[in-house]
Design a protein around this nucleic acid. Sequence first.
DNA 1: TAGCCTACCTAA
DNA 2: TAAGTTAGGTAGGCTA
Length: 552
Amino acid sequence: IECNNDGEHFCTPDKNEVIQIGNVCKIAGTEEIIARNIFTLGGCSEIADADVFSFKDEAAMLQAWRNFVVEVDPDIITGYNILNFDYSYLFGRADKLKIKDFSNLGRIKNKRISFKDSTFQSKAQGIRDTKEVVMEGRVQLDMLQHIQREHKLSQYSLNSVSLNFLKEQKEDVHWTIIKDLQAGTDDSRRRIAVYCLKDCYLPLRLLEKLMCIFNYTEMARVTGVPFSYLCTRGQQIKVLSQLLRKARSCNMLIPTQTRGDRGDKFEGAVVIEPKPGFYKTPIATLDFASLYPSIMMAHNLCYCTLVPPSVAPKLDKDSFIVTPTGEKFMKAEHRKGLLPIVLEELLAARKKARAELAQTTDPFMQKVLDGRQLALKISANSVYGFTGAQAGQLPCLQISGSVTSYGRQMIDKTKAKVEEYYSSANGFDFDAEVIYGDTDSVMVNFGDMSLERIIQLGNEASQVVTAEFTKPIKLEFEKVYYPYLLMAKKRYAGLLWTKPENYDKIDMKGIESVRRDNCSLVRNTINTCLSKLLIERDVDAAVEFVKNTVAS
DNA sequence: TAGCCTACCTAA
DNA sequence: TAAGTTAGGTAGGCTA
Ligand SMILES: Nc1ccn([C@H]2C[C@H](O)[C@@H](COP(=O)(O)OP(=O)(O)OP(=O)(O)O)O2)c(=O)n1
């Protein structure tokens, strides 16, 4: 929608009328546009490819728009910042103009839509104010919210987001000139209309290009929650839903738990003390595949396999295992846990998504599919997170604590094994050294050898270590950094190689150039500096460049 | 000035 | 059923 203003202050529904409402309707998955139109207050010159409906009176326009929505009967309504701006403005105006039945927009006759303030709050997302719009039978998919949740960008204006994803900008009409355009002629109002239609079209394009409907549908099927929950709710509901679904098929019930005893946290993962430096030898990176989910699957950790201390003495000692934190869990042959089954399904879905990713060659498509694969990975990791969520419905720190304790044990063992196996004591003519590792990965310095040899050693090492662990747990050789700049825990950069022929890219973790709380001068300087350092391997040139930048 | 605290953002 | 988890670097403020 576009609204009028007094030329000085930004529009408010108390004072300023809605002057235009643009709509573009499409059948998802097809190219067919079934309607493209603009409702205008005051006359408006013709626009190619769009129907112009002009009204003398704002109330009549709003009423006609409502009728249009009901007639088109959409399943999903999208737009940019519609939840926080468009809806509250439209309902504000409808109230003010006393338009009866304006908010009867849903699919249940005579049921008004509900609209209220709400906040979404989580540790990962921070606090985010939104509006809750319940329109029966129509999902509200605000692209601003979607992109804020799924993509980390430094700016979220429609303009910069479109530039980022569609390589396209909108022609800007600054709000201060809208008043004059509206007060002008049919032609000047047409300028607003063209701008407004573009504003409608861009979110729809984003929705399609990012395959939102496809990805959300898949997630809804895998996790068993309604589509709309994926936009408005968090990770917990997805885990709970999967758990409930599995529990029912296994004839079990899930208790409703009073939430209490919060505050005390459990110990997480270890980060191996880094040996900082600029490594000019290839550094192999070994990484466990989905570490926490596979720990839960390998050891059958679940709510229903946890043995209470009082019961343990009555059980056969061979029927359960003891985790490094001292918790006891039944073995799978006695009782198979629900969480491992849920995880199997999530990991299977992720595996499928990754296979499709490997098939694509289009770089943008690869990014989209990578996002899909990542979303499934986070859902799987959230099963672990759910058990440790003290503000949640079913916290069970025994499970989450056991998972992390196994994780700590495993990375220590991996480090020890690699260093012990690849040593001169074991008949090799070099001593491998683990220079860094975080949670589920180890970075190994085998010494000054060719890239081919390192890749071969990495593959071999992953098999040697995998053989040490229980079934679904798998150590993978992922990549080589050559050269590698290790600065501190969670801060490093390197030239990434997955094949000996050519490098993939510069990979940067945790340093200023990937953080969004730095100015672009710092980011650009570091980017250039790193490319001199890692690609050209010219330390002096890098130093010189920084000196010059600082001096100027 | 060392040491502790918080805010922010990121790695995993 | 409102809200996945912990670890950790850096900058900047405050205080003993
Ligand atoms: N958002 C995240 C990311 C990770 N982890 C935990 C669980 C993971 O098992 C572990 C390792 O994380 P990775 O980023 O290495 O990812 P995975 O090992 O799960 O997957 P993969 O290595 O196959 O990409 O850290 C988590 O709890 N939440």
